[in-house]
Design a protein around this nucleic acid. Structure first.
Length: 566
RNA sequence: UGACCCGUAGUGUAAUUGGCAACACGUCUGAUUUUGGUUCAGAAGAGUCCAGGUUCGAGCCCUGGCGGGUCAACCA
């Protein structure tokens, strides 16, 4: 026993580097801001499906709350009834749950606060901080100026509070047509920040809202809703992406008008997720769905969460990937291989190994008794002994991968060639004695002999072979559809081509459908079950599968150092 | 031409109060292996956008450039 001072665990923890957001959060915690509460929110607009970029936001929102013992609200940002629909709400909730996060009873909507927002607008008017503008949007746009030229003042800017109040209330009563009038905050038409040049905060929309029906004729703009909702909910840290950076002064301006005590929410912006060979904007994803480039939002080639799920990505792999790329203020372009690394790493631990032959070549083991079938034991996952083992049937004829035989193999080819020996995984060592070709010179069948003393686990042959092949018994094989996916686009940096449409870069071979053979046990697979098809890649069962036909998706191929050498 | 943000190996992130530029992916070796997977060992690759300044000492601070991004929806 030594009484030498041991390292303090907390100090060790502090040594870990934090991302800049958590650095700020910890600073705020130390300073006792907002009574040392941490409360975040994830604010999706219900107008589309969530993609992996949203997962990055979800992870910092829910993850920060989790890490610091706070809460995270789910708040649908539904301020525009024309663009938003109920149907998206359920899919968004399902995707967040799939990732493993929960908002408990705190499911909110910006529309929950329409009344308070309206009252706040009334207050601004009374305080001379908002006015009704009768000009059409084109004129208002012109008066806004440009980033380098200050704006000019609206002729309606100095209406009396009484007149503004009257007009705004009548706007909401439906007395005026859409587009005829807006409510603007009275801030500074000469501000270098365009968002401060008397931003529009309310517009007239004659469209039923999915939650409030026809109660309202005026709807708040994003800038007039978001920060205020944060305030109403007691949010402490409002995390969003970089493009909202210029909105922050406006966010703060409204909070300034709202504050009654020490509490105030703070907006912090981080970089959005960009991936090579991938488009992320809702608009472009929608275009691909509409044009039939993909089969739907959950097409396994899509970067949507439902697409990634169907492709075979796990929530853990996505979280791991997001953690590895971090949160900064630098607009980065992340290499797709990082995402692939993350799934492989996760699935390597979780996915049972199975036999599946994608491009079959028949092998007849000429000295194996006809009509005989053996059950051979094989391990389910060498990375995890607790996953146990199972039996697979072996017989006189098996399929192997066509690429595992070469008539004239190069020197370091460890597979089958005329006269060479190889082990069939979990079975016997076989030797290629002969091969048959069709008229066109294609190899159609191999004749091999096996060494009956070489059975796996009971090998007394003393032979050593370099190669081990996967196989499946012809008699017992289950024919399956296998969908091989490749990247959707052929260019790594799609946004780098300003003058060209992203659709020009679509990869015509992003989906290849083949028929292969899998071991019989796979008939029991359930949709979304993950497997490693030994030596070829990670696959999962697609929900298109039926009792009659199994359909597998290739999540990602195994790392392959051999093919690279060639 | 305006305001704001950002510039660290090929990619993405680190680097205590200024103190030998580190990690992951990728790439390349080699070992092990009944998956050419996994695992293990190792290598190459930046001198931190540029130029000044402060300092004993700067990736960190200051000034000026250069480069990239964002902002001119009654979208979010």
């Amino acid at each position: 026993m030594s009484d030498k001072p041991k390292e303090n665990k907390n100090v060790t923890n502090e040594r870990k580097s934090l991302n800049f957001i958590h650095t700020i959060v910890e600073q705020d915690l130390r300073e006792g801001k907002n009574s040392s509460r941490i409360h975040t929110r994830f604010p999706p607009e219900p107008n589309g499906y969530l993609h992996i970029g949203h997962a990055k936001a979800i992870q910092i929102d829910f993850g920060t709350a989790e890490k610091y013992g706070g809460k995270c609200n789910l708040r649908f940002d539904d301020t525009n009834p024309v663009k938003e629909e109920v149907e998206y709400i359920d899919s968004i909730k399902a995707d967040i749950h799939w990732l493993g996060y929960d908002w408990e009873e705190r499911e909110f909507y910006a529309s929950d606060y329409f009344g308070r927002l309206y009252d706040f607008a009334l207050d601004l008017i009374k305080n001379g901080l908002a006015y009704v503008d009768d000009q059409p949007s084109e004129i208002i746009a012109v008066q806004k100026g440009t980033p380098s030229v200050p704006g000019t003042v609206s002729p309606y800017r100095n209406r009396s509070a009484g007149e503004n109040l009257d007009l705004f209330q009548r706007m909401n009563a439906g007395e005026f047509p859409e587009g005829s009038r807006v409510l603007r905050a009275k801030i500074d038409m000469a501000s270098p920040n365009m968002h401060m040049r008397d931003p529009v905060i309310y517009r007239i929309i004659n469209h039923p809202h999915h939650r409030t029906g026809n109660t309202w004729k005026v709807y708040p703009m994003y800038d007039f809703a978001h920060g205020q909702c944060d305030y109403f909910e007691g949010i402490t840290h409002s995390l969003c992406t970089l493009e909202f950076e210029v909105h922050r002064p406006l966010y703060d301006w409204f909070i300034d008008q709202l504050m009654t005590d020490e509490y105030r929410p703070r907006q912090i912006e981080f970089n959005r997720l960009n991936l090579t060979y991938t488009v992320m904007s809702k608009r472009k994803l929608l275009q691909m769905v509409r044009n039939g480039v993909v089969k739907g939002w959950d097409d396994p080639r899509m970067p949507t969460l439902c697409g990634l799920k169907r492709r075979g990505y796990t929530p853990d792999s996505i979280k791991k990937f997001i953690n590895s790329i971090g949160y900064t203020k630098f607009e980065a372009l992340n290499d797709f291989s990082l995402l692939e690394f993350a799934v492989r790493e996760d699935l390597n631990k979780k996915a049972p190994r199975v036999m599946a032959v994608l491009d079959p070549l028949k092998v007849v083991i000429t000295n194996y008794p006809e009509g005989r079938t053996e059950q051979l034991e094989t391990i389910n996952n060498p990375e995890d002994p607790s996953m146990g083992s199972r039996n697979i049937p072996f017989s006189r004829e098996v399929y192997i991968e066509r690429s595992d035989f070469m008539e004239d193999p190069p020197k370091k080819f460890f597979r089958l060639g005329p006269g060479t020996e190889v082990r069939l995984k979990s079975a016997y060592i076989i030797k290629c004695e002969d091969y048959l070709k069709d008229k066109n010179g294609n190899i159609i069948e191999l004749h091999c002999t096996y060494d009956e003393n070489s059975r796996s686990g009971a090998d007394t042959s003393g032979k050593k072979v370099k190669g081990t092949l996967h196989w499946v018994s012809v008699l017992h094989a289950v024919r399956s559809e296998i969908r091989l996916y490749d990247r959707l686009f052929m260019d790594p940096e799609l946004d780098g081509h300003k003058e060209r449409d992203f659709m020009e870069f679509i990869n015509p071979d992003s989906l290849k459908v083949i028929e292969g053979f899998v071991e019989p046990g796979l008939a029991e697979a359930k949709p979304f079950d993950h497997y490693q098809f030994q030596r070829t890649g990670y696959f999962n069962l697609d929900p298109d599968s039926s009792r009659e036909k199994l359909v597998f998706n290739r999540t990602v191929p195994l790392r392959d150092t051999w093919s690279k050498k060639k």
